[in-house]
């Protein structure tokens, strides 16, 4: 493929694109699952979920000041941690909260697999960009929670997952743009990455 990119650059761009799409999908799925979870557990949006500890918070005040590596490392660490928390949430749903709702468990399991994939993809990106991925040593989630706190924590995990996925999408998109800009200055024809949303609902016509 004569795109002007090196194989590694092409692979990185390709991986970055996939990670972006995946993060977007995880965001969508987590958002959807968050709503489903809230309804199933009868939770109110007005509840405060700040009481739940240990879950990596996506809220940052100086996001723009972070480097690409820092953002990637934060994403990688967060998704790894969220994967663990989501696994506990699934276990609690199966064992305690909604033991009869297999379909819900399947959906959580699917999201869990995607978070795992996203965590791995972010880790791969770090490696591709020459950075060292963070260690997986995190504090284990608190096990002896009350029933209500379990419900809250589950919701909190999905909420943070959704937010982290959206953040990752932005981070990866930013990296894509940077990569394209750098490459376009270095190589002749820049390969525009997908700006897919702009093409939506385009009306076409055909003359016979």
């Amino acid at each position: 493929m004569a795109t002007g990119f090196s194989d590694s650059e092409q692979a990185r761009r390709d991986h970055l694109s996939k990670a972006t799409s995946l993060a977007r999908k995880v965001h969508k799925d987590a958002k959807e699952m968050q709503e489903i979870y809230r309804q199933k557990q009868g939770l109110s949006e007005e509840f405060s979920y700040d009481e739940v500890d240990g879950i990596p918070s996506s809220g940052v005040s100086k996001w723009n000041e972070l480097s690409d590596e820092e953002r990637l490392r934060a994403n990688a660490s967060a998704f790894h941690s969220l994967h663990c928390f989501l696994g506990i949430v699934l276990k609690e749903q199966r064992e305690d909260l909604t033991p009869e709702d297999g379909e819900f468990h399947e959906a959580l399991l699917s999201l869990l697999a995607q978070v795992e994939t996203l965590a791995e993809s972010t880790k791969q990106l770090l490696l591709m960009f020459g950075h060292v991925p963070p260690s997986n040593g995190i504090s284990s989630p608190e096990q002896d929670l009350t029933y209500f706190k379990k419900k809250l924590r589950g919701y909190k995990v999905l909420l943070e997952l959704s937010t982290w996925a959206l953040r990752a999408t932005r981070d990866f998109t930013k990296l894509q743009k940077q990569s394209t800009r750098i490459t376009s200055t270095m190589a002749a024809p820049a390969m525009r990455s997908a700006s897919r949303q702009k093409n939506q609902k385009k009306r076409g016509g055909y003359g016979r």
């Binding site: 093409n199 609902k201 076409g204 055909y206 016979r208």
Partner: peptide
Amino acid sequence: PENDTSSYIQTFSLQD
């Protein structure tokens, strides 16, 4: 022709 419908569209007008 595919070129006329290769984009992410949801409507199309058949003419003539």
